[in-house]
Design a protein around this nucleic acid. Structure first.
Lengths: 196, 196, 196, 196
DNA sequence: AATGAATGAGGATTCATTCAT
DNA sequence: AATGAATGAATCCTCATTCAT
């Protein structure tokens, strides 16, 4: 059984292979550090085939973010939990699928006009997540005003980002579990401060 | 002889102009997004002059980070403050000189072998800052063990990073002051949790 | 069966749509400037369908020229006219279907080995036209020798080309009617010079 | 004496070599048919060096046209001649430096937004030439009104373009001398028609 | 009669860097 | 202390064309 060298054209699968490769590379090196040639080498399809499936690099990266976000959503999806639990679940999801956030943060930190759609996709996905955190907080602390809820949601999202960065830098010497647990407990105190 | 002096002075000046331009560009676009040609265009000196002052791109960016860190240190230097105050001061310094952290975070998030010195410079600078936060915490909560102090310092640094990211993304709709104040107060509760 | 007929009809229709699109694009940008992808985008049919109807780019452009020439022939077809009238009619036909000549001239000016059939098609079409002009001249000035007739025919064709170029460049600020009328009158003088 | 392989950097000469090569290639194949790689191969300098001397392909071709026009101007420069003589001189200059007009006509026939400067350069050069023809006509036929002079100048320029095209297509079977001589004589008749 | 997918070669342009002056 | 010129490798992307269905 020699390697099938031309398995009959299969768009779906090729698209998936390209996205897998692009997620890997972009997760490692960011937007500018990712070259189409690298993606091509990693997925085995020629450069021109990548352009058949995606209009340009920008759209490719946007698609990577979109798909990665869906995976991450699946990973931390859960209902009826209380706030500290939610925070911990987010943390777990992070460790499981870190490419999404790493790439997204890199894009968010950049200040440039291009790569519009990739950046936009991340910001949209982020807004969705923020809203979700806010509604969980609102459920569990109905006495808080809108401003306070928004502040706590922002605080939580910032903590998540910060923990992620710390873990990226410090590796396993950073105890993500302890950090998330601490933040979960602290949120309750913070809610008390704000409702007072 | 005065010509000599003039020349030397111009050397310093040129170096400064290059660093200014590089800080701007790299702050906007990250390491890969920054090209020597862009820096040249922005500072008005030819490309080859940049290479006269800096060995290569990596060293140029490292120098940008180093200088930017010194400016930032100056901005939040202060002694004898209590923990919440320290946190607030860090926040103020952030808003004042954001290039340093933005570029540093971009570098930290990337996963690649090269650009050794730029990245190393940022990590070193970051370790210094972490140690400083830790010692302030230790001073003000002598009852805490080393592990607890380290956790709180990490937590604080993560919060700073996260707030910064939130502000980069959300602009002035994100109330940095409120976030830093909240974190300052919350730290005290956290210390209580951990010493219990 | 009616399906059959429909399909066949669609085949014709598709061919026509492709030719229309190709004529537009090639008229605007010349042979090299025309890409199959552009033609595809402009006619709505996929690239591979264009290759189903035409062997390659060269043949497609040749077909464009051929069809365009037929349209132009129709536009200036007329019998028994005298020389100045013929010249004016050619001019009118030019303004009506300019793609043909514009594309043809571009091809004629290029110096390269490929695109054989497109270029050949234009040259052939041009030879036909030249012969036709010559025979009209011969009819109306039977006293002229072959050489003189050929010279006048060439002169006229050159004038047509030149007027066309002038109009392409200068737009409606170039009074084509006046130019053609002038050339028509001048031809009579020229015939006199040559027969003397 | 081995081939000097790196003769010390000489901007002027390199620029000239690039222009020579570009004129050759573009004269043969037009704007789109000319690739920077071909120019590089023909002049021996690497592609990136071409970009050191010229901002982009557009500017390179524009420079080719400009220089070529100057050569052509030199070739047909002369004072105090009468109209038929001027026409003949233009014809001689054409045969001597045909690249200029061939490339220019190709550009003029194209209808596209880009390559702005190359096209603009040709049109400007052409306007200069037209004005020059007009003033010679005015000198020798002072009785003509402005409109008539402009028409005759346009007619002459169109004839030149047309003769050129005829010669490009027909090669030496087209007797340029006879055509130019004929046009020269005919102009006098045309002037009579118009002043009547 | 038509088309989605694939593909290698080549397109223009920019890259970081070096070198002679 | 500085710079004009050069350079090979890499960048993103488009090209004409083919092939299995």
């Amino acid at each position: 059984m020699s390697t099938e060298r031309k398995r009959r054209a299969n768009g779906e699968e090729s698209r998936r292979r390209i996205l897998d490769a692009a997620a890997e590379v972009a997760g490692e090196r960011g937007y500018d550090g990712t070259s189409i040639a690298q993606v091509s080498a990693r997925c085995g399809l020629p450069v021109s085939s990548i352009y058949w499936h995606f209009k340009d690099k920008d759209e490719l990266i946007a698609a990577v973010i979109e798909r990665s976000f869906e995976q991450w959503l699946t990973a931390f999806d859960a209902e009826g939990e209380d706030v500290p639990e939610l925070v911990v679940r987010i943390g777990e999801a992070l460790v499981a699928t870190p490419d999404f956030l790493r790439l997204g943060l890199m894009l968010a930190l950049e200040r440039r006009p291009h790569e519009a759609s990739a950046r936009r996709m991340f910001l949209q996905v982020r807004a969705t997540t923020l809203e979700r955190i806010a509604s969980t907080i609102r459920e569990h602390a109905p006495e808080l005003g809108d401003e306070a809820v928004r502040l706590l949601a922002l605080y939580t999202m910032a903590a998540v980002d910060g923990f992620f960065v710390a873990h990226e830098i410090g590796g396993d010497s950073v105890d993500l579990g302890a950090l998330f647990a601490l933040h979960g407990r602290v949120l309750v105190d913070a809610a008390r401060h704000l409702s007072a």
